[in-house]
Computed example of a mutant assay.
Amino acid sequence: MKKWILALVACLTFSMTAYATIEIYEFDNLEQEHQFKELGNTLRCPKCQNNTIADSNAELAVDLRHKVYEMTKEGKSKQEIVDYMIARYGNFVTYNPPFTIATSILWLGPIAVVLLGFGLIIVRSRKPKAVTEKDDQEWDSDKEARLKALLDEEKNDGDKQ
């Protein structure tokens, strides 16, 4: 019985290493290998969104790596491969999307918000504070009488002592 349990544990242990495979790509020349590595580090995984296809373990990233490998082996240029990926997955697949009308908000939006905010701060800080005549009259009539009454009261208290 112990032999069967030991054999089962050994089979399960060795079968787990099948999941830990490393993808090996063979190229015809060194230039193709450099192009593959460069594209793997410059194309973004559409599923992970913040990883390159070289760093991601998602199934989509594996498929993209395989497609880049196939296209590189076919002799396609780097730009042709990038254009294919953009046509299929959109500008998001690149880390530096081009400046277009659709992406202008992404590029110009933060600058516009900062400029608008600083402009508003400058306008509000340079605007003089207006004193209305009503506030002036209020001070003259009500508060002046009250001030005189307080001063007279203090003067009378000082004379009594």
Rank of each mutant, 00 (worst) to 15 (best):
G109Y: 00
V62A: 08
G158Q: 11
D140R: 13
G75N: 06
D55M: 13
S77T: 15
S15L: 14
Y19K: 13
V82A: 06
G75V: 02
K143A: 06
A149C: 00
Y25D: 09
L39Y: 01
A54W: 06
N156G: 00
K37E: 09
F118T: 06
E138P: 00
E80P: 02
T132S: 15
I122F: 11
C11D: 09
E133I: 10
P98E: 03
H34V: 08
L150I: 08
L12E: 13
L30N: 14
Q161S: 01
P46N: 10
F118K: 00
D152R: 12
I86M: 08
Q32G: 07
F27G: 02
K2L: 11
V131H: 08
K3G: 05
W4V: 14
A145I: 14
D28T: 12
I111F: 07
D55H: 11
K37A: 07
E80M: 05
N50F: 05
P98H: 07
D55A: 13
V68W: 02
K76E: 12
E59Q: 13
A149G: 04
V114Q: 00
Y84K: 04
G75K: 05
K67E: 12
D83S: 14
V9K: 06
N57L: 13
Q49T: 14
T103K: 01
L30T: 15
M1F: 10
Y69K: 06
I53W: 04
E70P: 01
L8H: 07
V68N: 01
D152A: 08
R146K: 11
K129E: 12
L150T: 04
L43P: 02
Y89E: 07
R124S: 09
K143V: 04
Y89K: 01
T17M: 12
S125K: 14
S104G: 00
P128Y: 06
L12M: 12
L39C: 04
G40A: 04
T103I: 03
Q49K: 14
G90H: 05
Y89M: 03
G109F: 00
N29P: 11
N41A: 09
E153K: 13
L39P: 01
L60N: 04
M85R: 02
I101A: 10
L108A: 08
S15R: 12
D152H: 09
I53P: 02
R44F: 04
N41H: 10
A20R: 12
K160R: 09
A145K: 12
K148W: 08
I86C: 03
I22E: 15
L6Y: 10
L6N: 13
L116C: 05
G119L: 05
V9R: 06
K67M: 09
Q79F: 07
